[in-house]
Amino acid sequence: MEQLEKKIVLVKYFLIAGLLLFIAGLLFSGKNSSADIEQVAQKVEQSIDMGSLSRADNRMVKRLYGLNANDYEGVALYVSDSNMKVEEILIVKLADNAQTEEVQSAVQGRLDRQLDSFEGYGPQQCALLEDHVLDTAGNYILYAVHQDAAAADQAFRKSL
């Protein structure tokens, strides 16, 4: 037993080496980004025609998505000036990756409500909604309803 106990302690050093490798893997796998949300938002703004889109406040985030902006590291929402347009950009920097699901389901809820509203009389708006981009990159989430949603997503990815 004593010999076994002597040997078993060697395991400890292998474990510590394993932990360090794991941490290095996490740090270099690039899962999360420390980029500032305002800079990310700026890059996305520059990548597409913002046209009638303007920045909305936290109350609008609550109203449209049911999300409390203070729970997140940062939220940037752009909505159309007209109720008849569906263009919308939402960028969320999560405080914790465990929040991913709640944000995604809030976005899905918003999308479903918009589709319900425009179904039947707004085929162009519905097409834009159908072609939306919902992209999760580590601690960042982008939701874009825009004719250049793909370009916005590309800029979003690059800025992280």
Binding site: E2, E5, K6, I8, V9, K12, L15, L19
Partner: peptide, 18 residues
Amino acid sequence: LMLFSIVYNYVAGIEIAY
């Protein structure tokens, strides 16, 4: 991390006792 914590502290406990 959880598994590391379990095995590492299990071994450390045995080593301290030893």
